[in-house]
């Protein structure tokens, strides 16, 4: 652990984490018409999570469930338009004027992008978990398979 050697690194990353979330949020909302979007936002969050895990700080739990949820959101947004009789992946855009923010434009693509963030972040955390477990991973997998067999029978 780097953290055992350097309190500067650990505190630095702890303080930087909220800032990274701000950057990620900016990228996420900017993505519609400018560089950025769910994938870029997710990667920024993922980079911070990777640093946090390297210094022993807390990281999000249940990465696989996060990926699955993100994927279901994406699939739902893709299939949603079919329910009202439009084509797959069609999108709807709303525009309103809010106090403080002014004119706001939002589309279903935003929900889609939120799904992308979850998938990217979940994937990175899942990879970190797998790397951290190293050799133990195979035994965990096998134990799971055993559990399944018992559940089946």
């Amino acid at each position: 652990m780097i953290a055992d050697r350097s309190i500067v690194v650990q505190d630095g990353i702890r303080l930087a984490s909220p800032l990274a979330i701000i950057v990620a949020t900016m990228l996420f909302f900017g993505g519609h018409n400018q560089p950025g979007g769910g994938f870029a936002g997710g990667l920024v969050l993922g980079a911070v999570v990777a640093l946090r895990s390297a210094t022993g700080l807390s990281v999000p739990l249940h990465p696989v469930r996060m990926m699955a949820l993100g994927g279901v959101i994406i699939g739902g947004v893709a299939l949603g338009p079919l329910v009202v009789g439009d084509v797959v992946l069609d999108q709807y855009i709303w525009e309103t004027t809010l106090p403080v923010l002014g004119k706001v434009k939002a589309g279903t693509a935003l929900i889609f992008d939120a799904g992308v963030v979850l998938v990217v972040l979940g994937l990175i955390v899942a990879m970190l978990d797998a790397l951290a477990q190293g050799g133990e991973h195979r035994t965990t997998l096998r134990l799971d398979a055993e559990g399944d067999r018992e559940a089946d029978q």
């Binding site: 696989v64 279901v72 994406i74 699939g75």
Partner: peptide
Amino acid sequence: GLAVIVPLLAAMVSLG
């Protein structure tokens, strides 16, 4: 469209 999206959605649900 469903023939492509349904398997993907099922992949994600079964992952969960």
